[in-house]
Amino acid sequence: MSNETAEVTHAVVVNDEEQYSVWWADRDLPAGWRKAGFEGTRADCLAHIEQVWSDLRPRSLRERMATSA
């Protein structure tokens, strides 16, 4: 990773299905995504996502499976 990339601030973003990603903090978000409240280097954001995103199934699937159980 170059020094330039390491210095860019990123944001953790999440969509309505509670799926996480990393986005540039200074850019407009794509439709359907919102900031999740964490910013830092790309590596910091990925580490944060690893801590908070424990169930990788989309929210709609988790809900469907919970009601059928």
Rank of each mutant, 00 (worst) to 15 (best):
H10D: 13
A11V: 02
S54C: 01
L61P: 09
L46C: 03
L29Y: 05
A11T: 02
M1H: 02
D44E: 13
R57G: 15
N15I: 06
R64I: 11
V12Q: 02
V8M: 00
L56W: 07
P58D: 14
D55T: 09
D44H: 11
A36E: 00
E18K: 07
W53T: 00
A6K: 08
W33G: 07
W24M: 15
S21M: 14
R42I: 03
S21C: 15
M65H: 05
S21R: 15
E18Y: 09
A47R: 11
D44I: 04
G32H: 14
L56G: 11
A6T: 04
T67E: 12
R64F: 09
R42L: 06
R57H: 13
E7W: 06
R57S: 15
H48M: 08
V14C: 13
W23K: 03
Y20G: 07
V8Y: 00
G40F: 03
A6E: 04
H48P: 14
M65T: 05
W33Q: 10
L46Y: 03
V13N: 10
L29T: 03
V52E: 01
A11I: 01
E63S: 14
D28R: 03
E4N: 11
V8P: 00
D16Y: 10
T9W: 08
D44N: 14
E4Y: 02
A31F: 14
E17K: 00
